[in-house]
Amino acid sequence: MRKIKRIGIMGGTFNPIHIGHLIIAEETRKKFNLDKVIFIPTGSPPHKDKTKLIPALDRYIMTILATIKNKYFTVSDIETNRIGTSYTIDTLKELNVVYKDSELFFITGADSILDIENWKDTEELLNICTFIAATRPGYNLDEVNFQIDKLEKKYNKKISFLTIAPMDVSSSQIRKRIKENKTIKYMTSDSVINYIVEKEFYR
């Protein structure tokens, strides 16, 4: 009997990708015994300020640079190549066809999962794959658990939960530090830093 593959999906603007994204992906891969994690940089996300986004192709390239040394990580251009607004439901439908014999796990931050009812086609989203909510610094775990419990009962779907050791690194923090001419060393990979410097992004 052929083993069903377990595929992690990690979406985000990755503007830029940083060490926190990589830690969440690796911790999730290990805990949930995933065969691989696919990073999917968003193209034109519906809930983000697009004026602060660098081009999708550059975010895609930086994601490759940051993940290339981990054999379990891969990067998809499924959204960066899409014309128009990128909705998670459209991406998951496509991936469900490509990986029809696999089990999909969508990895996201606890803050995003608490906002999932504002996403397009929430119920269908929760039916397509298993959602994994990773905690981030600054969130009340009791409140997160309470809200996730409400979602599970409302949609009759299991949402897995993963506690990550506190790490106060964010893309917005990196962009701010670059603007202020401060170092971002160790906040992301050297290859990503070199790419940002070469392209003069976030100045």
Rank of each mutant, 00 (worst) to 15 (best):
D58V: 08
T122F: 10
M10T: 10
Q173P: 02
P55R: 10
K153E: 11
L162F: 04
E143H: 15
N127I: 08
T63P: 13
P41T: 06
N118L: 09
A165W: 09
R82Y: 13
V37A: 05
D111P: 03
P55Q: 00
P166K: 08
S102I: 03
A56F: 04
K154C: 04
K157D: 07
N140E: 02
K3P: 11
L34N: 00
D121S: 09
H18K: 03
M10H: 03
K93S: 08
T63K: 14
N127T: 13
I19C: 13
K71D: 14
K3W: 04
K176Q: 15
L104N: 01
D101Q: 01
A110H: 05
L125A: 10
T67L: 04
P41W: 01
P16G: 07
K199P: 04
F32L: 04
M1H: 12
P16F: 01
R59G: 07
T51C: 03
G11H: 00
T108N: 09
T28H: 05
T74P: 11
G43L: 05
D149T: 14
F131T: 01
E94G: 05
N140F: 02
K48L: 09
T122N: 03
G20C: 11
V144N: 02
F73T: 11
I17S: 05
I178F: 12
K52W: 01
K199Y: 08
D190L: 10
N96S: 14
V37Y: 00
I4V: 12
N70L: 07
K50V: 13
